[in-house]
Each structure stands twice: as structure tokens, then as C-alpha cells.
Amino acid sequence: MNVLVFADCQDGKILKSGIEAVSYASRVVEQFGGTLVTATYGTEDSSELEKLGEVGAETLFVSKTNQGTPWSLTEYLSALVRERNIELVVLSNDFTGKAILGLLGSKLDAGAVNNAVDFPKNENGFTVKSQMFSGKAFGEVRITSSIKIIALLPNAVGTVSNPKSLSIKYFEGDFNSRIKIVEEKKLETGGTVPLPEAELVVSGGRGLKGPENWGIVEDLASTLGATTACSRPVSDLDWRPHHEHVGQTGLAIRPNLYIAIGISGAIQHLAGVNGSKTIVVVNNDPEAPFFKAADYGVVADAFEFIPKFTEALKAHKANNA
């Protein structure tokens, strides 16, 4: 099965979710046979491109002029699919992947499965396990079209080292964006990993009473090197920016560690975070539903416990440095 994988790039940096997608695709090729073609754009920096070689990319196409818009990427990838007789396209289910998945599906007349959480199987036709119902369930989905597309949920399978010698080919030709980018805005995340890719997340809820109290959340997050998140009412009340809102109507995330502070654990909140590998809940109400979904629980006033926890963590880090 000839596989094309796309790794997104922003500000000249290959995204972590893109590296994971390449690692996934190279393992699919090991399992099913065939050749792997990797595509990216927006950087010629060999130290960035080498990151893809580390996880299994060999033939790497780089489009120099692509603007990275849904249509221009779709046409770039469609051209590679035709040129290289591709049967499976792998994307990351990140913002860019979500934007191009459907365009690509319609252009290639391909069945697409997004939110994939595992490697494809070939027992009952070609099937992939996909996260559905905002994290409340999974489905084993069969794709029957001759060209297939999988969008991999970030942090679902991780990355394994598989160094290969890269052969870089610059892709000539321009593709129409059909939209004009007027301005780009950066989120103020204080240099931390964006939420969908974060492995460590510290999240605050309405139990923190007001935006002025977020210092304890931020201190804990920066001590851990974690990204901050919040429950929906917190972003609705504008205590925190919208991009931090996790749950059924916000981002669905699956970090290695999710620390929930002053969050009750409503079903819509859990939907977006229950894929996390380890969940810690800090809540002063022992009956809070979140404890049922937690691995570790602390029944305590957050304002007392979190500063102590952060101090202890600093000591732990100093000892383990």
C-alpha cells in the first residue's frame, strides 16, 4: 500500500502532530508493505526536515511556495497522490488536518476516517478505530474506496525512532488558495506547547472563583512545563481565552497527564478529556463526579493544596535535575 503522509509546518517548524503522523505512516508501511512518501511545506531548514527522517520519512517533498491554506494544501497533496499512485493518505487530526480532510476526500473520491486512535487492520476489509461521540465511544470504521484517508488523533500512538536517510525533493508549482490571508495572530501561550499537542495539562474550573485566582494554576503549569486549559463556563465568563476551553464543545485532548482543579466533572467536560492517560482531580467536594473518572484524587481546597503541591514539585525537580 503506497502511503502519503502530510506533516504540517508553522513558522518554519514542523509540528509535533506532523512528526507523529509520519511515525504512524511509516509503521503502516512496515505492516502493509508499499512505499512511503512524506510531504510538508513552509521550511527548507534541514534540521527541521531531518526530524521527519528520524521517524521514518525517506522521500520527502517540500513545497516552497504553498501558503498552507485548505485548498492549496489539498491540491498539493492531490497532485502527489496522482503522481505517486497513492492508496492511503495519512494526516494529523490537528487544525490543518481537519481543514483539508474533507476537501481531499471529495477531490480524490476517497473515504476518510478522522480521530483515528490506532493502526489500521486488514481482517474485515480495511478498518481503523476512531474516537467518536466526543470521546465517549469508539467505532471500528471500514473504508471501502480505493483511495483512503486517515486523520490521526494527536498523542494517540506516539512517535518511535526509525532513522532513515532523507531524500528531499522541492515541489515546484503553485496552488490557488482561493482565500487571502490578511493577518496572522499568535495565541499568548507563554511559549508552551499548544493544547492539542500538550502532554501535560493543568486545567481550572469555576471552583477557582475568578480570573484573578489563576496564578496558582499558572505557577503549577510552568513548574511542570504544562499547558493550561479550562472548563466551558470559565471561558464563557471570559476568565480565560476560548482556545483553552476543553470538553464536548471545546477541544478534545488526550495528554499523558490532566490535572483538573475546581472542575466538577460534568459529562460534557469529561467527554473532551477522558482520553487522558492519567487524570488527577483536586476538588473540595468529595462527591464531585470527576473523582469517578480520576486516577488520583485530592479532596482539598485548591487554594491551599495547589501552592503546596507546586512547592513540592519544585523540590522534586531540583532533586531529579
Binding site: 473515504g111 474485515n124 467518536m132 470521546g135 465511544a137 469508539f138 467505532g139 471500528e140 473504508i143 471501502t144
Partner: peptide, 11 residues
């Protein structure tokens, strides 16, 4: 129709 869900599971 290019996709179909064969079975579902819960976490």
C-alpha cells in the same frame, strides 16, 4: 458510500 462503522466500543 465509502465508510461504514462495523462496531462500536466504550472506553
Amino acid at each position: 458510500r465509502h465508510t461504514e462503522v462495523l462496531s462500536y466500543s466504550l472506553p
